[in-house]
Amino acid sequence: MQRTCLFPGSFDPVTKGHIDIIQRSVALFDKLVIGVGINSNKQPMFSAEQRVGWIREVFAGDSRIEVVSYEGLTVDFCRKIGAQFILRGVRYVSDFEYEKAIADMNRMLESSVETIFLPCTPEYSTISSTLVRDVIRNGGNVDLFIPKEVKW
């Protein structure tokens, strides 16, 4: 059986922290699907198409990685793509507490999907898409925080 993992997120925009988690986790699975979530209650800074395109460009040539956008419950999307695992990166204890609550809910909704937590490397622990968007809105330089493929 192919071990398929979903790494869901908004990736608005994708950061070097996201890239680190993806690069370190891809060897653990036969296939890693990066799911750019579309939440109708949130207004992203960048379109889903831009976000998917950037991630595809970063990982072009790696056949183990697929990038798609999706709407709805993450566990429903896992069923659709045959994913047995959900990958979540954690930076701090507060991230873990929040992510564990989601993982517990997902487990109750779909017991066959296991959530895997991967801590980020220390150099990326302070990077978040929220902070990057704030720097962008205020005209700051975000080159240290995002891959070179992210352009707007």
Rank of each mutant, 00 (worst) to 15 (best):
M1Y: 06
R3I: 05
C5E: 01
L6V: 15
F7Y: 15
P8Q: 06
P8V: 07
V14K: 09
V14A: 13
T15H: 13
K16N: 15
K16Q: 02
K16P: 02
I19L: 15
I19N: 08
I19K: 14
D20W: 03
R24F: 11
S25V: 11
V26G: 07
F29E: 03
L32H: 04
V33Y: 09
G35D: 01
G35I: 05
V36W: 06
V36P: 05
N39Y: 09
S40G: 02
S40K: 13
N41R: 07
N41K: 09
K42R: 08
M45Y: 11
F46K: 05
F46P: 04
E49I: 10
E49N: 10
Q50R: 08
R51G: 11
I55H: 11
V58W: 02
G61W: 14
G61V: 08
R64D: 00
E66K: 10
E71N: 06
G72Q: 07
L73P: 10
L73I: 14
I81E: 13
I81N: 13
F85R: 03
I86C: 01
L87Q: 04
L87C: 04
V90T: 14
V93S: 14
S94T: 13
D95N: 07
D95E: 06
Y98P: 11
I102Y: 08
A103E: 00
L109G: 14
L109V: 15
V113R: 00
I116V: 15
L118Q: 11
P119W: 01
T121M: 13
P122E: 14
S125G: 01
S128V: 06
S129W: 09
L131N: 07
V135Y: 03
I136W: 04
R137N: 12
N138P: 00
G139F: 11
N141D: 15
D143I: 03
D143H: 12
F145V: 01
I146T: 14
I146F: 13
K151N: 05
W152V: 10
